[in-house]
Amino acid sequence: MIIVGLAGWGDHDSLYPSGTSAKDKLRRYGDHFPLVEMDSSFYAVQSADRMARYAEETPGEFRFVVKAYQGMTGHLRGKPYYANDDEMYEAFCASLDPILRSGKLAAALFQYPPWFDCTKGNVGLLRETKKRMEGFPCALEFRHQSWFEPAFRERTLAFMREEGWIHSVCDEPQAGIGSIPIVLEVSRPDFTLVRMHGRNVGGWNQSGAANWREVRYLYDYNDDELLEWKTRIEKLVAQSGTVGIVFNNNSGGHAAENAKRFMRLLDLPVPEFPGTDAPEQLDLFDF
C-alpha cells in the first residue's frame, strides 16, 4: 500500500476554501490526503488531549508521522524545558499514546542534525533512544553523509534492522557532508517512510541565514523527477507492507500540487482542490 501526504497541514492554502479557520484545517486536510507529518511536535511536545483531538478529527484510515521533539535529536538551543531526559521522553511518549491507541501512528520521526555523524557514541545514543521508545514505531533519518559512506552503509542498514528502526528514505539536494544520498533499502517489513525535501542545492546549507526556512525547501518537482520516484517507490513497495511518502518542499507552496501529481502517476485516487466540491446542503431544521 502507498499513502501520500504533506509536512504539516496549516500552510497549504490551496487545499482549503477561502476563510477556513486554523482549527478546521486538519479536518479539511483529511479529505485530501491519508497521511500527514506533524512538525509542531518538534518545537514543543503536544498535550495528550490535543493529540486525542487530532485523532478524532481525522478519517479512520488516516496516519500521522510525528516528528520527535528537538531536545531528543540534538537540535535544542537554549535552556532545556525538561529537568532531565527521563522526564522529556515520558512526556513525548504520553503525547503519542492517543495517536498510537487510535491506530493512527505511522511513526515517530527522529531526524538527526547534520553534525550527528557516524560514531560509536552516536550509535550508543540511538540504541538508548530506541529503548526509551519501546512500544512506539520509530523512523530514523540522518543528515550526515558518514552513515552511508561505503565503509558504513551496510552496517548502518543492518543496525536499523536489528534495532527495529523504520528507514526514512530521503530525496534531498546533494550538497556535501550535510546531506545523504537516496538509499532504497527497507529496514522493517511493515512500513517505510519516504521524505521528499526538494533539490535546492543552493539553499540546503543556509540554516544560519535569516530566511533559511523560505529557501531551504524551495523546489518544484517536475514530471521526469516524479516518474523516477515512481519506479523507486515500486521497488520499496515490493519489500514493505506500506510506504508513506511525505512532500516537505513547502517553501514555495509546491508540496500539495506535487503530491497530487505524484498520486496520479501512482494511479491513486486524487481528491480535487477546493472549488470543485458540491455545495453543502443546509439543514432547515437544525436550530
Rank of each mutant, 00 (worst) to 15 (best):
F148P: 00
E149A: 12
P150G: 07
P150K: 04
P150W: 03
P150V: 06
A151P: 00
F152N: 10
R153W: 06
E154I: 01
E154F: 07
T156H: 01
T156P: 01
L157W: 02
L157Y: 04
A158D: 13
F159K: 01
M160W: 04
M160A: 09
R161F: 04
R161K: 14
E162F: 00
E163W: 05
W165M: 01
I166S: 02
H167F: 06
H167E: 05
V169K: 07
V169W: 07
C170S: 14
D171E: 14
E172A: 09
E172Y: 09
E172P: 00
P173C: 13
P173I: 12
A175N: 07
A175E: 12
G176I: 06
I177E: 15
G178M: 07
G178S: 14
G178A: 14
S179Q: 08
P181H: 09
V183G: 07
V183K: 09
L184R: 08
V186P: 00
R188K: 13
R188C: 13
P189Y: 04
P189V: 07
D190L: 04
F191S: 00
V194M: 15
V194H: 06
R195Y: 09
R195P: 05
R195N: 05
R195V: 06
R195A: 01
H197S: 00
G198K: 00
R199H: 04
R199M: 09
R199N: 00
N200K: 04
G203Y: 02
W204Q: 02
N205W: 02
S207Q: 15
S207G: 06
N211E: 15
N211C: 10
W212M: 08
W212F: 15
W212N: 08
R213F: 15
R216C: 14
Y217T: 03
Y217R: 04
L218T: 03
Y219D: 05
Y219G: 05
D220F: 05
D220L: 08
D220G: 02
Y221C: 13
N222H: 12
N222C: 14
D224Q: 12
